[in-house]
Design a protein around this nucleic acid. Sequence first.
DNA 1: TCTGCCATGTAAGCCGTTACATGATTTT
DNA 2: AAAATCATGTAACGGCTTACATGGCAGA
Lengths: 218, 218
Amino acid sequence: MLDLAILGLLHESPMHGYELRKQLSTKLGAIRAAISYGSLYPTLRRLQTAGWITEAGETPADDADVPPLTSRRGRVVYKITAEGKERFQDLLAQVGPEAYEDAAFGVHFAFFSRTEVDIRLRILEGRRRKVEERREGFREVLQRAAERLDAYTLELQRHGLDAADREVRWLEELIANERSGRTPPPRGSEGELRPPTPRSTDSAPPLTARPGPDDSAE
Amino acid sequence: MLDLAILGLLHESPMHGYELRKQLSTKLGAIRAAISYGSLYPTLRRLQTAGWITEAGETPADDADVPPLTSRRGRVVYKITAEGKERFQDLLAQVGPEAYEDAAFGVHFAFFSRTEVDIRLRILEGRRRKVEERREGFREVLQRAAERLDAYTLELQRHGLDAADREVRWLEELIANERSGRTPPPRGSEGELRPPTPRSTDSAPPLTARPGPDDSAE
DNA sequence: TCTGCCATGTAAGCCGTTACATGATTTT
DNA sequence: AAAATCATGTAACGGCTTACATGGCAGA
């Protein structure tokens, strides 16, 4: 799961570990807290040994910004290899029941723009099923055991039910959208939120496009 | 955290491990998946060694149901000790920053009916703070980096923002409620959901009441 | 100069899971 | 008689965090 995330990010552009961690926590911020270095660096090592990633020579200053520094300390920049890309696709397509768990689902979702439509649908549907089951669980507890639980526990169940219900509806919209052919999820339908709403959002990337401007690296 | 949950449940009534696991997954279903036996039984052992719980003699058939069985297999029934109750209160009151994490917060919340009002408030406020920070993180990403992220990643951020925003509002209601003196969280305010709406829910327990059939402690 | 952030790494350990092993009791 | 579910446990391993150790570079 960390593998998937790292390969995915490096697929977008080469990066060193420290940067990787930051990107990870913004890209997957909705899913999990920042990963620790004690986990990140050994994983990078492992991925390198496996041949999925290699060290790239610290990008020789493509953009002539701040060139005078020999090479600020180590700063090992990694990039994904061809095998790594294959591996990445394999991991994406591996849709076992674990892929519907909260964390795994989130990671898969985060890389949906690199995933085939049918895989996306399988994941979204599997996730929906899972959340529906969860939701039914809450409903049953609320219906059957309501009298036996204290008010706080009940409130927790209600909150859980509400969240599950919302997620199911969210997933349904996404599924409908995938089926309709329009690839990128359109936002705004269920608005209410977004207070200042920076207009930027409607410049949605054409999707299927290459991972943005390589620049970044350094 | 498992300790807290187990002590909490045994505080309500004596139970054997298997039963404990089931109760745990309904009571904390909104928080975490069922705990595995490989974790549960060793923990029970540890709690027993520490003196927080003891084996109770398989409840001598208080309710005269199915008495003819000698004692179906082992079935070790545990009950909480006086020290265990103290320990439980200590754990509840230990409101370090970890108590605001998703899982820990949920467990604390689930046992709010056994917690002092001021502790409840501290936890709710700490949690709110945490979720607010999370929410701001999403907002910043959406405002600042919107163009650089693909449509799916953006959608994930939006969904995260929405969930965080909802939770903050939920917490605010709970906090207001605690402050107002009315102990039990009133439900229904933000309704919309509950489709068949089993009426059961409005027979809300008076709270402050002992957890169900008081007996328990023993 | 010193604080703070960038940057990489290692070692120990926590907290939990999976898989296995066993057997009693209940239901079909 | 078989299948399901109740019930308890152990051993091995896995993923991740914490704490530690090291050092470069930037700006106050």
